[in-house]
């Protein structure tokens, strides 16, 4: 069973675009932090805060430090452009809800973490298509090769202990010593 399990649970969903939409990317992306190609500043702040709840920062780095938002912006501008409608609709709906519930707040990113989590649990139920797209994009941005704009300085790989040396000799782990 040499299977490509990656679509388990993802197959057939719009989020697949994040995993199958790459044909326009042939060169490395080097967008600087803080400038975006598709997202507005406020959208970027919301996306970054959402991603930071999917892979949070604690005593170790998370999606924020890996610059997942840069990966997502790059993707929406090029290799995952097909996800733009899902993102635009999903983000607009989410920001409206945040504004209705917290009219005095300057956006989702400024809310308390517990409040953000509660809003995201609601988002996951209300708009699973956008949520899954966001989730897959965050994971891809965390762990794809840094040339795609995320996984900044291999933050994601270091977090999980993946070493991109691609050549090893036994022992490989603690049990085969």
């Amino acid at each position: 069973m040499d299977r490509r399990f990656f679509v388990k649970g993802v197959a057939g969903s719009a989020a697949l675009v994040w995993l199958q939409g790459l044909d326009t990317l042939r060169r490395p992306l080097t967008a600087a932090k803080g400038t975006y190609r598709v997202l507005s500043e406020s959208q970027a702040a919301t996306v970054e805060a959402l991603a930071a709840q999917i892979i949070p920062t604690d005593d170790t780095p998370g999606a924020r430090e890996a610059r997942v938002v840069t990966f997502i912006d790059n993707g929406l501008a090029s290799f995952a452009a097909a996800q733009r409608p899902v993102f635009e609709r999903g983000l607009a709906g989410f920001e409206t809800e945040v504004h209705n519930r917290f009219p005095d707040a300057a956006g989702f990113a400024t809310l308390q973490s517990a409040t953000q989590v509660e809003l995201m649990i609601g988002l996951e139920q209300r708009d699973p298509e956008f949520f899954e797209s966001l989730r897959v994009a965050t994971i891809a941005g965390m762990f794809a090769d840094p040339k795609y704009g995320g996984n900044f300085e291999k933050t994601g790989w270091k977090l999980i202990g993946f070493d991109d040396r691609f050549g090893w000799a036994p022992p490989f782990g603690d049990y085969d010593r």
Partner: peptide
């Protein structure tokens, strides 16, 4: 599971 794969379905 390669890293993205582990996060997405692993």
């Amino acid at each position: 599971a390669t890293p993205i794969a582990y996060g997405v379905w692993g």
